[in-house]
């Protein structure tokens, strides 16, 4: 029993040394891990203004925003109807068309498939548009409808809608 206090002291010293060492190592590793996150200038890669006056009904353009393609489409009446007809509850990623647009005829989407990041086809007249007449991803066969919602294939989510505002009737600011 006489040895016990001594052991306690040693245990305490060992434990506190190991703990301090672990905390110190973790604190030292953190800056290295954090340095791999997007840098400040990358985060600051701001917004883009787009003139949309030249886009005809049914036409779609692709612009670059933060290194990604953004689709801006002026939808036809049929396409709007088709998008509205769908019951949100039946979808894989339920969302009403009204929640995805600010003005009914203008659909703005990040043109990156939510499966593995390819750019879906459907921007050009000659492109395949998939079974729902919106976009079709050639990499692994995801079909998107005229609201950019996932309808068929491996993608888990709808095409993202980026933050944007109408500065006036002919200009959109994205970001």
């Amino acid at each position: 029993m006489a040895k016990k206090p001594k052991n306690k002291r040693r245990d305490f010293l060992q434990l506190s040394t190991v703990t301090l060492g672990a905390v110190g190592t973790a604190a030292f590793i953190w800056p290295f891990l954090k340095s791999m996150s997007p840098a400040e200038d990358t985060l600051a890669a701001g917004s883009t203004e787009v003139d949309i006056s030249a886009i005809e009904e049914g036409q779609s353009i692709t612009i670059k925003w933060r290194g990604k393609p953004v689709f801006i489409k002026k939808r036809t009446k049929d396409e709007i109807e088709a998008a509205k007809m769908v019951q949100a509850g039946d979808l894989r990623d339920p969302q009403d068309d009204a929640d995805r647009v600010q003005k009914e005829e203008w659909l703005v989407l990040v043109g990156v498939c939510t499966h593995l990041g390819c750019v879906p086809l459907g921007q050009k007249v000659s492109d395949m548009k998939g079974e729902y007449d919106g976009w079709y991803c050639p990499c692994h066969g995801s079909h998107y409808d005229t609201s950019g919602r996932i309808r068929k294939g491996p993608a888990p989510k709808n095409l993202d809608v980026p933050p944007y505002t109408f500065l006036n009737d002919t200009t959109i600011k994205i970001g």
Binding site: S37, G67, G117
Partner: peptide, 30 residues
């Protein structure tokens, strides 16, 4: 792009992990 997007399949931390691996929101200079 496709391979790094595999990591975004992980629930909750996936997107953040992907961004951390890429050093950007998509494959770029970083």
């Amino acid at each position: 792009t496709v391979i790094t997007n595999l990591f975004s399949a992980i629930p909750i931390i996936g997107e953040g992990l992907k961004t951390w691996l890429l050093g950007d929101y998509n494959v770029g200079n970083a």
